[in-house]
Design a protein around this nucleic acid. Structure first.
Lengths: 249, 249
DNA sequence: CCGTGGCCTTGACCTGCGTCAAGATGAAAA
DNA sequence: TTTTCATCTTGACGCAGGTCAAGGCCACGG
């Protein structure tokens, strides 16, 4: 593996100055069935409502940087976020893309362990960590849920290690498209065509590849009739079976 | 990245038939300061003692396989374990090495998400998950600690993603040696020379490389006087500064 | 309508690391 | 001590994917 040219610098994203902040009505939340709020009792919901702030980010706006004090945790309610870590020389690894319902903000004592940036227009719920921790006392279910979220994220991270360490470029791209399709389906979208709001550079930095290899690999999948490109950001999986075979290895 | 030849099959490890099982005295535990038992109250310790079983594994013995029902969680008290996932064709990614004090057994609804195998002679504490969960009711601190463990593991997993996706072979090996050295220091060992009970094949599958590349890279580090090989399993870091520079990128 | 600038694609070439193969080493058994 | 066998090292070679460079596409502003 060679040292890929940093996909950064991108147009330097501005620090979060949320477009709007407002108290939120969690009871009316339309993505609650996906979030860590799922299945909470009525009084838990109302206590959460009391500490939550809604905010919006424009595309490319930063939510926070790696190392920032981790005062808040968040729930994505709309749009797509990317989480990434940088090496000193600018090489970047995107550790995850977050869709509506996904949670972010787990952090160790050194603050957030990654940077978080909006891919497109994003809306989030923001919870002060201190106040949320205080709620754990009254509602142990909440902490149980946090542990489950962390565990699920950990399992996903292990899968991603297998992908990064042991899969070919074609397999990486196939897995990426199939996984994203599944996640979109779980959110009530069709999942096919797959929607790709992120750039080829983002995908490359997520899969441990270069932009060119991602592009060439997609072209090859098109030539082989496994996928069809409807637009830059929409890819139809034409032959699910062969894609799945490819993804299995 | 090409498809590395499976480092498996190794001499097929036998399923765990622990060499001995015994009740344990947690109060006298010599690695407690490292484990998730750290800082627990006296009565918490005694409640833990009541549900724990100690067991031993010989080198290469399996503790559990990916997909097994996750009835237990464990704490390593002696030796080194490796956790890994396999692709259908045998390619292997080692997701972590566990040293004394390290915890394992977090799992989703599909059972353990990885296989666990002893690298050398290992001793563990085993906790039935059901009984541990029951203790969470009485001792919320225990659950707090589990969440912290999961969070720390997640942060480590993200660092590993950067390593797998964006670092060169030389950087990977340097980071591996330095991190292992740090972990040994935290356990009261010198950390230099670094002790490597795992094989070159294990290291390769942990770093997303082949055996040959690991071996060649170590040879290069020796030629360049960054390290000195004392024995197959002992490597002295001679020039910590240049090693650190290399590891930073 | 035309420029401008960001992204994406494609081609030609290069190289880091994988593959294949042949010893070397070292621990354990005879 | 010698045999054995797994593991490790080293060399020669090949290729997947990275690098460099040119051009295409498309949204947006003037």
């Amino acid at each position: 593996m060679t040292r890929p040219s940093p996909t950064l610098p991108e147009p330097m994203p501005t620090q979060a100055r949320p477009g709007n902040c407002a108290a939120a009505n969690c009871a009316a939340c339309e993505v609650r069935s996906l979030t860590f709020c799922i299945g909470l009792e009525h009084d838990e919901i109302s206590r959460l409502s009391a500490i939550v702030t809604r905010l919006s980010l424009a595309a490319h706006q930063m939510l926070f940087h790696e190392g920032d004090a981790a005062e808040f945790v968040y729930n994505v309610t709309r749009g797509v976020m990317k989480l990434y870590k940088l090496l000193p020389d600018g090489r970047r690894q995107i550790t995850g893309f977050l869709l509506p319902g996904d949670f972010l903000g787990l952090a160790g004592k050194d603050g957030y362990s990654y940077s978080a940036e909006a891919v497109d227009a994003v809306e989030l719920c923001r919870f002060p960590r201190r106040k949320l921790n205080a709620l754990f006392e009254a509602f142990p279910q909440l902490e149980r849920r946090m542990l489950k979220l962390a565990t699920d994220e950990l399992i996903a991270a292990q899968d991603q290690m297998v992908l990064l360490g042991r899969r070919t470029a074609a397999e990486k791209v196939a897995v990426f498209l199939l996984r994203l399709s599944e996640r979109e389906k779980m959110r009530g979208q069709t999942g096919n065509p797959v929607l790709l709001p992120m750039t080829r550079g983002d995908i490359a930095d997520y899969l441990g590849l270069t932009i060119e290899t991602v592009s060439r690999t997609l072209s090859k999948l098109k030539r082989d009739r496994l996928i069809r490109q409807i637009s830059l950001t929409e890819i139809e999986i034409v032959d699910v079976e062969r894609m799945t075979n490819l993804a299995e290895g």
